[in-house]
Computed example of a mutant assay.
Amino acid sequence: MAGTLLAPPSGTPLQRLVQMAMERGYTAQGEMFSVADMGRLAQEALGCQAELLCGGLGSPNRDRVLQHLVAGHPLLIPYDEDFNHEPCQRKGHKAHWAVSTGVLLGVQGVPSPGYAEDPELSGLFHPMPGMPCQPPSLPEEDLPGAVYLLCKQGKSWHCQLWDYDQVRDSNMQLTDFSPSRAADGREYVVPAGGVRAGLCGQALLLRPRDPSH
């Protein structure tokens, strides 16, 4: 899903991604419990830049994450998936990946020139294509409900808006391998240090290699 944004319109077939990951020892069943391995796969398969983010989505990384999304680049986030695909906290037992492709910011005033109000939703403003505009001011970190990520999980048909703090908290508690997976008799590739070392508090910032893209 991120590949279609980084190298449109072709993207890279899922089957090819899984094949490459298996050949390089990153996965056995299609699972991916290492953000570092996912970054290496993204760079090779998508020809993009992949920056490994450690220390969680909160401070001091929060502004970098939001500015990355405002610039139009995708973010890959491991998190615990609830029954409705939204973030939850299950200690990593429901660990999955989501791609975030945008952000909704709650701001105090009408944005500067370069933004247009949505024709159907008053109070919602979009950057105007091709128009220079000042990046919006980022809401304070402790302001609840002010930042939402536009995210999609592979098993869902729809994009969803997730509260930033819920995504941050879910990402920070990925510590344990699922007992049901451990008992299912199948092989999985789990990095040294387990789920905590491979996923907890980590994400991937993806950018095109061509800076003019």
Rank of each mutant, 00 (worst) to 15 (best):
Asp176Glu: 14
Ala146Arg: 05
Ser212Asn: 04
Gly39Asn: 08
Gly193Pro: 03
Leu161Gly: 06
Leu174Ile: 06
Ser59Thr: 12
Leu199Ala: 08
Val18Tyr: 02
Leu161Pro: 01
Glu187Asn: 13
Leu138Asp: 12
Ser112Lys: 07
Ala197Asn: 03
Gly130Pro: 10
Asp176Tyr: 11
Met1His: 05
Cys54Leu: 10
Met1Phe: 11
Pro135Glu: 05
Val190Phe: 04
Ala95Asn: 06
Gln173Leu: 10
Gly25Cys: 13
Leu104Tyr: 01
Gly30Ser: 07
Leu138Val: 06
Leu138Tyr: 12
Asn171Tyr: 00
Leu161Ala: 06
His73Met: 08
Val147Gln: 04
Glu51Asp: 13
Pro78Arg: 11
Gln19Ile: 11
Leu14Pro: 01
Val195Pro: 00
Lys152Phe: 14
Ala7Gln: 12
Leu41Ile: 09
Ala50Glu: 05
Pro113Val: 09
Val35Ala: 08
Ala197Trp: 01
Gly11Met: 09
Leu41Ala: 10
Glu31Cys: 03
Ile77Thr: 02
Gly92Phe: 00
Pro136Asp: 11
Thr4His: 11
Ser212Leu: 12
Gln202Tyr: 04
Trp157Gln: 05
Glu31Gly: 02
Ala2Ser: 09
Val18Gln: 03
Gln160Tyr: 01
Val110Lys: 10
Arg90Val: 02
Cys159Phe: 13
Glu117Leu: 02
Glu86Cys: 07
Phe177Leu: 15
Ala7Ser: 11
Val189Cys: 13
Leu199Arg: 13
Asp184Leu: 08
Arg186Lys: 15
Gln19Trp: 07
Leu124Asn: 07
Ala197Tyr: 05
Glu23His: 12
Arg207Pro: 00
Ala2Leu: 06
Gly145Ile: 06
Ser156Phe: 03
